[in-house]
């Protein structure tokens, strides 16, 4: 029997469940390795060579190289693990979160100061108002 996933109709949201975790195991474990300063240095010196030491898919490696966090999450990454890449790059959680919304860093920060993204129109896929351009099928 497949996993029960009552959260699949929530827009713009990926739940880190067992299926995602299995898909992203090595991507997330690569991220954990960046908690060591020596590994951060090796990664920054030659990102591609460092990634090639891990049994990740090519798509996962490319998503990391592109710093495409939405793609990383679709491929099994979890934000708390991916935050290690952000820390390596010197980026804050707010910069990382904002980068996934299609908004500029400034526009995202301003939205948060004004009280954040509204819940109205963001509960169900069927009434999703903040759907970014090009996401009509998700």
């Amino acid at each position: 029997m497949p996993l029960d996933k009552p959260y699949r109709d929530i827009p713009g949201t990926t739940i880190f469940d067992a299926d995602q975790s299995r898909l992203g195991y090595w991507l997330n474990q690569f991220c954990m390795s960046l908690m060591s300063a020596a590994n951060r240095t090796r990664f920054k010196t030659d990102e591609r060579a460092y990634l090639d030491e891990w049994p990740m898919s090519e798509a996962q490696k490319q998503a990391v190289l592109d710093r495409d966090l939405n793609r990383c999450i679709a491929l099994g990454g979890n934000i708390y693990f991916l935050a290690k890449i952000g820390a390596t790059d010197g980026r804050s959680f707010q910069q990382m979160a904002g980068s996934m919304t299609g908004m500029s860093e400034e526009a995202y920060r301003d939205m948060m100061v004004r009280g954040g993204r509204a819940i109205e129109g963001n509960r169900y896929l069927s009434d999703w108002q903040d759907r970014p351009p090009g996401k009509e099928t998700e």
Partner: peptide
């Protein structure tokens, strides 16, 4: 919410 296009969600009520 720290991830995806819905990041930044706040629900005060």
């Amino acid at each position: 919410q720290l991830q995806g296009p819905r990041a930044g969600l706040i629900n005060r009520a």
